[in-house]
Design a protein around this nucleic acid. Sequence first.
DNA 1: CATGAATGAGGCTTCATTCAT
DNA 2: GATGAATGAAGCCTCATTCAT
Lengths: 195, 195, 195, 195
Amino acid sequence: MQQRLAANRAQIVRAARRLIARGGFREASMVAVAAAAGLSTGAIYRYFPSKAQLFIEVLTAAVAHEIELLEQIAGAPGTAALRLQNAVETFARRALEGRNLAYAFIAEPIDAEVDAARIRSRREFSEVFQRLLRDGIRSGEFCRQDAEASAACIVGAFTEALVGPIAPGGKAVGPQTRAQLIAAISQFCLRAVRA
Amino acid sequence: MQQRLAANRAQIVRAARRLIARGGFREASMVAVAAAAGLSTGAIYRYFPSKAQLFIEVLTAAVAHEIELLEQIAGAPGTAALRLQNAVETFARRALEGRNLAYAFIAEPIDAEVDAARIRSRREFSEVFQRLLRDGIRSGEFCRQDAEASAACIVGAFTEALVGPIAPGGKAVGPQTRAQLIAAISQFCLRAVRA
Amino acid sequence: MQQRLAANRAQIVRAARRLIARGGFREASMVAVAAAAGLSTGAIYRYFPSKAQLFIEVLTAAVAHEIELLEQIAGAPGTAALRLQNAVETFARRALEGRNLAYAFIAEPIDAEVDAARIRSRREFSEVFQRLLRDGIRSGEFCRQDAEASAACIVGAFTEALVGPIAPGGKAVGPQTRAQLIAAISQFCLRAVRA
Amino acid sequence: MQQRLAANRAQIVRAARRLIARGGFREASMVAVAAAAGLSTGAIYRYFPSKAQLFIEVLTAAVAHEIELLEQIAGAPGTAALRLQNAVETFARRALEGRNLAYAFIAEPIDAEVDAARIRSRREFSEVFQRLLRDGIRSGEFCRQDAEASAACIVGAFTEALVGPIAPGGKAVGPQTRAQLIAAISQFCLRAVRA
DNA sequence: CATGAATGAGGCTTCATTCAT
DNA sequence: GATGAATGAAGCCTCATTCAT
């Protein structure tokens, strides 16, 4: 029934997300997605008209979820600085946990359609940070600056922790090291914007 | 003779770099590389055992060149702050000009081997910034901080300007806008590390 | 009950005929036929054991209808020449109107079974013209000739007007041009058989 | 070398032609063409950029050959009637021998590109007959008539002998029957156009 | 009986790699 | 050594047919 279909659809998206997160678009072939979702390749096409559309949905769904979280944090009461710190730390932590976000920021052009969706998603994501920065600039907590560029820098900074060379690749890292890294990143960003 | 072989090898690497820079790994098929190098596909395999190995060499060669430039800047006389500013601006500018570097930082996992090389290259690149930061911390110009994390943040920050949503995608951007963006990025990074 | 089943069956055949007439066998997938018939794909298989059998029925039903029309014309009172002219013009007109018949004559081999049915249908169709020709030969209106071959030539002649290069492809054609074409075809056929 | 390539190309075209002639476009899958040509599927794409382009070449090459033959006959000295008879008989004979032409006239739409080429080819073919008819009308041998429509009728008439129900399908037919059929067709056409 | 989601083979196309010339 | 035609596996997608509900 209805439920089963929705479950399958979600299963497909999850499978695609998992594969992309693990090995990039390269490893997320339709055959692999179907196998990981426990369906036949043909079945995928009942739910998505093409590989590009599936990937776009995976991307936008993941980013939508992250943005929701982000806006809760950004819209909470408190100083802009605290909210920024909270946002950066939350997302650095999520990134380090390898959840949901990584692949959305990866850049290799796979397909014009998908790429357009990726750019849109990144912009939306970045805009939440921009608004937070403008709040702080208005209230005098943050120095005057190009909020658009700074938002990009912040996103880039903690994204780098995710895919960059200091990201804990295969080797397991203790929770302490992790906490230190997150703290370092958030301090970096706060210093960069503070008045 | 020896010279001709070396010339061919260099020609292949250059051709591959050009193609990757233009359209990502996706456009750099072995046939395209061979054609661009003025050789046959078979000949490529006299110089490189596989596509992965060729790409690894392309990557490391490009990064080696960038690191050379970077170390000149980082090792020049002057305050750490000025050298950092110089380094960040130079690389932001190079990235915006779409030269050589971009693909080395943004590539999605094409191949496990290539990806390992990419991570190594990023680390080397990041390490130059680390040394610069440590210099500044020692001299008191920069505040005490996790140099490794900050270096990653700096690299991430200007990389984001390259592939992120504020990057000048297709539309040409005036030199003034460009200069403003670069200035904004470098100011961001300097504020973040300064004492 | 019985009636409902028969109605469904007829509905399926009509849906298939409509789709084939519009876009050829290529557009008549089982899913499309089912949708057009307001039934599920599975239901089609309660009425027809396979796609081939459905198409065969579509074909023979359509041709049976055409033959009925044709025999009315051929069996009407009047000279053989008039009846032939009437028959040719009627079918040229029907063909130009894109009704029902076209695909039965022009289909390429989709399936061995279907093709056999197509050939049989064409023969039946042609035989009505043969009988008309024999009438005319017997009465002296038409010259002595191989009636079987002539019938085939007549059918071919106006079929060509349907799918051939002078057929009004996409561009709409005025009723005058149409009438002229039909007249030209029927004159051609009459001259060919007249004593 | 050069020769081998040309031979392969010709082999591919021949293989495709053979398959199309036997079972229509339906049986001429790229895999089947490759197998029949003694090559791998990938190899086909060294010679033709797509299935559509291969089929277009097969079509136009075959028709070009037929048109060459046809123009020799149409351009020979002699009365228009004799030349028309000669042309019709030659092509009826060729059609009965199942050579080269059949598939070029078959109508199932496979692909927009291929279909456009098919229509063009048919038109070219028909135009040779048109010119012959106009010759005869000018010289008074043929009655006044719509040459375009008559040419289509002639082509249709003998094409019908090829794919129609009286065409000797599987059963072998004696040379006498064959000759009679051809004579009947040509007589039909001549009567249809004569003054 | 009807539904329509699921299957799975098969179609077109690409491309890293090999090997006869 | 160099060439580039050939291979063949793999990718995306379609669709006739089946079967659990």
